[in-house]
Amino acid sequence: MKARRAIAAAAVLLAGCDAGIPAAHPAPPPSVTAAASASAPVSASPSADVALTLAFGGDVHFTERTAALLRQPATAFGPMAADLAGADLAVVNLETAVTSRGTPEPKEFHFRAPPVAFEAVKAAGVDAVSIANNHALDYGRVGFADTLDGAAAAGVPVFGGGRTIDEAYAPLVLTVRGVRVAIVGFSQIHTLAESWKAGPATPGIALAWDVPRAVEAVRAARDRADLVVVFNHWGTERESCPNANQKTFAKALADAGADMIIGAHAHVLQGDGWLGRTYVAYGLGNFVWYVGSADTGVLKVHVRGRSVTGAELVPAVISGTGQPSALTGAAAAAAKQRFTDLRGCTGLAAAPPAA
Score class of each variant (00 low, 15 high):
4 R>N: 06
5 R>I: 09
6 A>K: 07
11 A>V: 00
13 L>P: 01
16 G>M: 03
18 D>R: 01
28 P>G: 10
29 P>E: 09
31 S>W: 00
36 A>T: 04
37 S>E: 15
42 V>Y: 00
42 V>Q: 14
42 V>W: 02
43 S>W: 02
45 S>E: 13
45 S>G: 14
54 L>K: 09
55 A>I: 08
67 A>S: 14
74 A>Q: 13
75 T>I: 02
79 P>I: 08
81 A>E: 07
83 D>Q: 14
88 D>K: 04
93 N>M: 04
93 N>D: 11
95 E>Y: 10
100 S>Q: 08
103 T>M: 01
104 P>G: 07
107 K>W: 02
112 R>Y: 12
117 A>W: 00
120 A>Y: 01
122 K>S: 14
127 D>W: 07
128 A>V: 13
131 I>H: 02
132 A>L: 06
133 N>K: 11
136 A>Y: 02
138 D>V: 00
149 D>Y: 01
158 V>T: 15
162 G>K: 09
164 T>Y: 00
164 T>N: 01
168 A>V: 10
172 L>H: 11
172 L>V: 14
180 R>D: 05
181 V>S: 11
182 A>D: 08
189 I>G: 01
191 T>Y: 13
194 E>M: 12
194 E>H: 13
199 G>M: 06
200 P>T: 11
200 P>K: 05
200 P>D: 12
201 A>V: 11
202 T>D: 03
206 A>W: 10
206 A>R: 07
214 A>P: 07
215 V>K: 04
216 E>D: 15
225 A>K: 12
231 F>V: 15
232 N>I: 02
234 W>M: 10
235 G>Q: 06
241 C>G: 13
250 A>K: 00
252 A>L: 04
258 A>R: 06
264 A>L: 12
265 H>V: 07
269 L>I: 07
272 D>G: 15
280 V>F: 11
283 G>M: 12
286 N>L: 08
288 V>E: 14
289 W>Y: 14
291 V>I: 11
292 G>P: 06
298 V>K: 04
301 V>E: 05
304 R>L: 03
308 V>S: 12
312 E>M: 02
313 L>K: 01
317 V>G: 03
324 P>R: 12
331 A>S: 13
332 A>Q: 07
333 A>Q: 12
334 A>H: 08
335 A>K: 15
339 F>T: 02
340 T>H: 15
340 T>G: 11
343 R>P: 00
350 A>I: 07
355 A>T: 14
